[in-house]
């Protein structure tokens, strides 16, 4: 539920950024309040993944201007791990495989890093096991996945579910899902969407990046933004997503171009 008085979780002002000397973000503006679900849509190459990685602090991207505040603090001056521990979570478009590191160990170390950072109790292997069993239900994942190496040999859908499992454990204040729906069949999509809905509450916020409206039937956004060429060119409600589905992106791009001209 959204209310005017909800605290602001993320506020992005005129953010510009480069990768390898090329400007990719050309003035992003976005405000997300607690309890809200936002969707960013837009054609391939418009800078959506870049934006999500910059929020998470990927070192390959260079912020050249603008501000990002997260829960009132300057997000841009935090190391990636501190952003994560403070509650920024990014579900990757292409989750990596990490051979040799068990999923369970990975989850426990991640969980305990956050606990420690927030001055909360770290869990031993035994207590953690109990916790993780409950979280498995969120994404209907089999416990056998815990004992395999992180994402190694997982199918596309299993990797995405594993991302949501990590999110369920880390309970972020801002969950950013980069194309979490892509490559999923309808059953997997429903499971992932159901997981996201379970995790959403009045104290946190979700930013979904997708270029299909399909996911938005299951996770209903409060706001939809269209991104093109490094900035948000239009914002609306979920009806905008339906309109995009029907008419494609060109008309928005044309209108934006006309508006700028």
């Amino acid at each position: 539920m959204i209310s005017e008085n909800s605290p602001i979780i993320l506020s992005v002002n005129d953010l510009t950024a480069n990768v390898d000397g090329t400007q990719i973000l050309k003035g992003m503006n976005l405000e997300i309040k607690a309890g809200e679900i936002h969707a960013i849509m837009g054609p391939n190459g418009s800078g959506k993944s870049t934006f999500s990685k910059i929020l998470a602090g990927h070192p390959a991207y260079e912020v050249t201007g603008g501000e990002v505040s997260f829960l009132g603090q300057n997000l841009l001056e935090l190391e990636p791990e501190d952003r994560a521990r403070s509650g920024v979570f990014l579900a990757f478009q292409y989750p990596l495989e990490i051979p040799g590191v068990s999923n369970l160990d990975f989850l426990r170390v991640a969980y305990n890093s956050r606990q420690k950072h927030q001055g909360l109790e770290e869990l031993d292997a035994f207590d953690f096991d109990e916790l993780v069993q409950q979280k498995l239900d969120v994404v209907k994942m089999d416990a056998a996945f815990l004992h395999r190496s992180v994402n190694e040999g997982f199918s596309g859908g299993e990797k995405k579910r594993n991302e949501i499992l990590q999110m369920a454990l880390l309970e972020p204040k801002l969950g950013i899902l980069d194309e979490t729906d892509s490559g999923l069949d309808i059953d997997a999509l429903k499971i992932v969407a159901d997981g996201v809905n379970q995790l959403s509450n009045p104290d946190n916020a979700t930013l979904m990046i997708t270029h299909y409206q399909r996911l938005l039937n299951y996770v209903v956004p409060d706001y939809v933004h269209v991104m093109a060429n490094g900035r948000i060119i239009r914002s609306g409600t979920k009806d905008l997503a339906l309109e995009l589905e029907e008419r494609g992106y060109d008309w928005v791009l044309d209108e934006a171009a006309a508006g700028v001209a």
């Binding site: 602090g57 521990r85 989750p95 040799g100 068990s102 170390v109 991640a110 880390l170």
Partner: peptide, 30 residues
């Protein structure tokens, strides 16, 4: 052949795990 590069480390760091711990986990596993 596997690799520990910037993206692998970023994945760990995004989950709150420091780069040092990430390397040590990947190397121990390896």
């Amino acid at each position: 052949t596997s690799k520990i590069g910037e993206d692998q480390l970023f994945f760990f760091r995004q989950r709150g795990i420091s780069a040092e711990d990430a390397i040590s986990m990947m190397i121990s596993g390896f």
